[in-house]
Amino acid sequence: MKNSFKVFNIIFKDRFYTVALNALFQYVLYTLFLLFLVFFYNVNDYLVKVGSKVTFYAFFKKDIANENIVKLKKIIENWPEVKSVKIIKPEEGIAILKRSLGKESGILNTLDTNPLPVTLQINIKPAFTEKFYINQISDRLKKFEMIEWYDTTEKYIGNIISVRKNMTNIFIGGIALFLFIIFLALRIMSRGFINKYAQSIQLLKMLGASRAFIVIPFIVEGFIESFITSLLSTATSVYVVSYLQSELTELGFTILSLPLEVYLLFMLLVSAIGGISNIPGKKLL
């Protein structure tokens, strides 16, 4: 097979500009793709964090004995959906309220007595944040007579949880579509370039070159070209993310970089796409 590379270098030696143009095109495509990936990764991370923090607040009736409160806490702690349970005493509750109101907390000073009851803060495990489990927990809480009423953050973030699910589907579809577009674009572009060499390929066949003899150097060239451009795109994307990280941290935002294995998988995948899309069309072979 070494001979096929030698022949390739002799016959197709004037490919520098076409290869460079193709590489530039790939660089732009891959960089856009990676930035799209970073954007979604961060949106998804935000939604996961928010969506996984479902908390119930169960407010006790007045004058419930402390030992009964502790007993109920232990029962709820044993529920499979529950991550942790905390008792919030009225004075703690008012302190929390003051903190959350900030400058406007002065209004609470006008109160003669603390109106807040003893409260149970029930944190739900991230795996049980869907509507079905939330309803189950709600039904169970309703049965306890010592609980006056309860509230859950799920009703505020329920939409986020369902959006996140749809987002994941849209994202997977988006990646597949993007990769397919990359493949098609590269195929059309590479074939356009390769068709210029139709006569040379026909002549190689006439002289006895097999299909593999002709095709393998094209595949290797496409693979290397895509690997190098994907490496450059990865470097660009990492640079853009680190730049945004330094700029946005001052504004209170955090931006995450993609995990290393995502970059490696991306490079491997697009290199393979580059190699395959560089195969001359069937008509030429």
Partner: peptide, 13 residues
């Protein structure tokens, strides 16, 4: 040279 590279398995250019 191209003709020989195709026809022969000789690897030394």
């Amino acid at each position: 040279i191209v003709n020989l590279l195709i026809k022969q398995t000789e690897r030394h250019l």
